[in-house]
Design a protein around this nucleic acid. Sequence first.
RNA 1: GGCCCCAUCGUUUAGCGGCCUAGGACGCUGCCCUCUCACGGCAGUAGCGCGGGUUCGAAUCCCGCUGGGGUCACCA
Length: 501
Amino acid sequence: MTSSAITAPFTTATGSDVVVRFCPSPTGTPHVGLVRTALFNWAYARHTGGKFVFRIEDTDAERDSEESFEMILEALRWLGLNWDEGVGVGGPNEPYRQSQRTDIYLEIVEKLKASGHLYESYMSGEDIDARNEAEGRAKQLGYGNWERDASERAKYIKDGVSPALRLRVPDVDITFDDLVRGEITFPAGSFPDFVVVRPNGQPLYTLVNPVDDALMGITHVLRGEDLLSSTPRQIALYNAMFEAGITKFIPRFGHLPYVMGEGNKKLSKRDPESNLFHHRDRGFIPEGLLNYLALLGWGISAERDIFSLDELAEHFDVENVNPNPARFDQKKADAINASHIRLLSVDDFAERLIPYLQSAGVLGHQISDVQRATLKAAAPLVQERMVVLSEAPGLLGFLFKTADEIVIEDDAREGMPENVGEVLAAAIGALENVSDFKTEAIQEALNHALIEVLELKPRFAFGPLRTGISGRRISPPLFESMEILGKEETIKRLAAFARTV
RNA sequence: GGCCCCAUCGUUUAGCGGCCUAGGACGCUGCCCUCUCACGGCAGUAGCGCGGGUUCGAAUCCCGCUGGGGUCACCA
């Protein structure tokens, strides 16, 4: 029995009855827009006490790749977005990869055929174009639902050609209450009966996505706004499933705004900023990236924008998501990340620097006790100086080198005082007399020798020393750095630098 | 082109009829702090797209316009 209206009810699930899902297609590298969708779904599930399902939509053998699948898993794990049911953790609706669910779809298709919601369609693209032209219909209108009528359909049946399957769409206005945008109505006739199964029997996204959502009991569909216009189609399919006894309700939909790039364009996959791993490589920590991404469309309060994942979960509600598209602003993202870096405990911060120091070759695969001690001593000196962790090798590299490995960078030679040789000699002389080589004593000795005796301005007094021990114009605090290097090494470096000026 | 969505400082966001002389954050500018760079502190800069209504009163509600975006596949 096929009705001519939408009779299926929308879900009224709230609280712990909420079931959301994240269902990416494994194509390419994870995009920040995709991450934000995952984040909001996760946050909504955690906020309501509901369930977060993770499913993979790999029904396009042409474009899907195992490599991309692995990257999505790695991304979610790195970000700490855990799921309750789905790929890797199992659950009552296995399997969670659509490529393994073909039998399930075939069964649903049979039911929908039996209930009269699906019909065979033999018209090819060329047939449709030709018919539109013959009838003077605009080509953009596409399919004209001609084959709903069996006698019409008969005209297009060709020997040896299998039919596609189309959904018979009710000829009524379709209205739903979008969680972020409010009531939206698509007038009857906005779209034609659409194909849900290819002639070769392969079910398409148009079928498989709502079918899985229905079978898995998804109550709230939070997804990108690019899918907004396909929502009435899905509601039509839900209605068919309802009438065929496959499901009990239609989920609620919430369409999340785009993440934009430069200009007025969606952040393109080609844009490096769109690539999650690009940000990780630059030294974003998950806390920072997630916080920033949440800010694209949502805010925790009027006066605050730094918050943790737990706080996000506590306060997040889809209904407060702003419907307008937001531009990805790298500077703001950096600032948020920097704030989170400062929030880390020193030990945690130090640990997180290691991979960046290793990939830059500052540290090897094996880390010695001495290196670990140096890192521990140096971490607090730079924690407030970093925006992204990839700055670590540049900032800390000199602490893990020997005097002869120090390269004096060009810009570090600039701004030296006339008497740089004298300054270095005085500094060396002063340091040699420091018996307890600690920050305070070092500072005292150098202050006396350079500021008081030589009457130098601080920047002329300490600039050369900074360049000498680090080779750079910018470094962690000088005296602390000297303490970490030790007396002998410090003097060796200053002497070596003195020979080059 | 049809249909749909969107519209507050440069960016992001607060605002859900009077609390708005429109708030915060990032950015930018200046100052303070200072051994570099940062952190931090202080101050400043800058916005309701336009036009009609409704109302005693509109950034907030309604309509239109303009502008932007999306979508119209046997991709997802």
